[in-house]
Simulated scan of single mutants.
Amino acid sequence: MAPRDSRPAALLEALGVPEAEETAYLSVLAAPESTVAALAAELALTPGRAGELLRSLTERGLLHRSEGPPARWSAIAPDLAVQALLLRREAELCRLRGRIGELMRTHRTARRPPAAELVEVVTGPEVIAGHWRRMLAGARHRVLLFDKPPHVVRADPELELGLLSRGICVRVVYEAGSVSAPGRLAEIREFTGAGEQARVLPELPCKLAVVDDRWAMLPLCTGSAPHGAMLMRSSSLLDALAGTFEAYWNRAVRIPDPRTPARDPKDRHTELLTLLCAGFTDDSIARQLGVSPRTVQRWVRELMDSLGARTRFQAGIQAARAGLL
């Protein structure tokens, strides 16, 4: 069983009340009408120290003093007293939030010349991953992603699921090679089931992440696991990257939401088109849809003929334009 005072003590500590005062407050809370002598005996303190703690708690609004002799202290109702402390702490945090801009100016002046303050180069997978997680933690409205192999940071589903649970809009364009990796489609379905909006293209120019209108991150080099990345803050360059995402998003083919059940052949054909655009082989599609490879081949021929497409991906594009995806 946890100690009697573990939960209140943790609460008061979070509100800036020192440990010694927490202990004194809990003692008075459990024994109303406490005196200096009683508190000193209870906590093995000198009378001077006990009186100091009682006066400090009274100034914080946690205790009420009744004149004696001897003077006695009782705890003010915790819902009122703790709420007042909480409001004061919130006011302090608001003041600090208002000074973030001032702190950032000091940081930039000390570390970089003004011309370079909008772009920061970070190196090393662990450092990149740390910046990435901090960007996601600070997201308020939206996260835009180009998901292109190889994967380094975006391997932890909890990162994105946490965003979606906070109501953040997450839109992802997947490169076909990413979707066709073993187990990847099941993971994407988990994301789309939680609210992610997902589309797919045969190829993407680079990895990219845009968080709100405040940050963007992309690797210094493409084609291998990134050991260096550029972190960009609000600027025309960040706006251009967001515009690049929108251009590719509008060209991409939608990945169906798994929350919508496939009730007829048209629904199955929708998933077939998505898998075709993702670069899945006939055997892989057959396993995903639970049919034979010959059935997949027949469906593909029928779709391409009906859409007038010469390639599989062209069939997906034609289907998207026709509103079938």
Score class of each variant (00 low, 15 high):
residue 1 M to R: 13
residue 1 M to L: 12
residue 3 P to D: 15
residue 6 S to D: 14
residue 10 A to V: 10
residue 10 A to G: 08
residue 11 L to E: 13
residue 13 E to V: 11
residue 16 G to W: 02
residue 17 V to G: 00
residue 19 E to N: 14
residue 21 E to Q: 14
residue 21 E to D: 12
residue 22 E to G: 15
residue 22 E to V: 15
residue 25 Y to S: 00
residue 26 L to I: 02
residue 27 S to L: 10
residue 29 L to P: 00
residue 31 A to D: 10
residue 32 P to W: 00
residue 42 E to V: 11
residue 44 A to Q: 15
residue 46 T to V: 10
residue 48 G to L: 15
residue 48 G to I: 09
residue 49 R to V: 03
residue 52 E to H: 14
residue 53 L to Q: 06
residue 62 L to C: 00
residue 64 H to C: 01
residue 64 H to N: 04
residue 69 P to F: 07
residue 70 P to F: 11
residue 70 P to T: 06
residue 86 L to Y: 07
residue 89 R to M: 08
residue 91 A to R: 13
residue 96 L to W: 14
residue 99 R to V: 03
residue 99 R to P: 04
residue 100 I to R: 06
residue 103 L to Y: 08
residue 107 H to D: 13
residue 110 A to E: 11
residue 114 P to K: 08
residue 114 P to F: 02
residue 119 V to I: 09
residue 119 V to P: 03
residue 124 G to L: 04
residue 128 I to K: 03
residue 129 A to F: 14
residue 130 G to A: 11
residue 132 W to T: 10
residue 133 R to D: 12
residue 135 M to T: 04
residue 139 A to R: 06
residue 141 H to M: 08
residue 142 R to C: 07
residue 157 P to Q: 04
residue 157 P to E: 05
residue 159 L to F: 14
residue 159 L to E: 09
residue 161 L to I: 09
residue 162 G to Q: 07
residue 165 S to P: 05
residue 168 I to N: 07
residue 173 V to T: 04
residue 175 E to M: 06
residue 178 S to G: 11
residue 185 L to T: 01
residue 188 I to K: 01
residue 191 F to V: 03
residue 196 E to F: 12
residue 200 V to T: 06
residue 201 L to C: 07
residue 203 E to R: 15
residue 208 L to P: 02
residue 216 A to F: 00
residue 219 P to K: 14
residue 227 H to E: 14
residue 228 G to W: 04
residue 229 A to M: 09
residue 232 M to L: 15
residue 232 M to F: 15
residue 233 R to T: 10
residue 236 S to A: 15
residue 236 S to P: 08
residue 237 L to D: 15
residue 239 D to I: 06
residue 241 L to V: 14
residue 244 T to M: 14
residue 245 F to E: 04
residue 246 E to I: 08
residue 247 A to D: 13
residue 249 W to L: 04
residue 251 R to K: 15
residue 252 A to T: 02
residue 257 D to K: 04
residue 258 P to K: 08
residue 260 T to K: 12
residue 263 R to P: 00
residue 265 P to K: 03
residue 267 D to W: 06
residue 276 L to H: 01
residue 277 C to D: 08
residue 281 T to E: 10
residue 284 S to N: 09
residue 285 I to Q: 00
residue 288 Q to M: 13
residue 289 L to Q: 02
residue 291 V to F: 03
residue 291 V to S: 02
residue 292 S to Q: 10
residue 292 S to D: 05
residue 294 R to K: 08
residue 294 R to P: 07
residue 297 Q to G: 11
residue 298 R to P: 12
residue 299 W to L: 02
residue 301 R to Q: 12
residue 305 D to M: 11
residue 313 F to W: 12
residue 315 A to D: 03
residue 317 I to A: 12
residue 322 A to G: 02
residue 322 A to E: 07
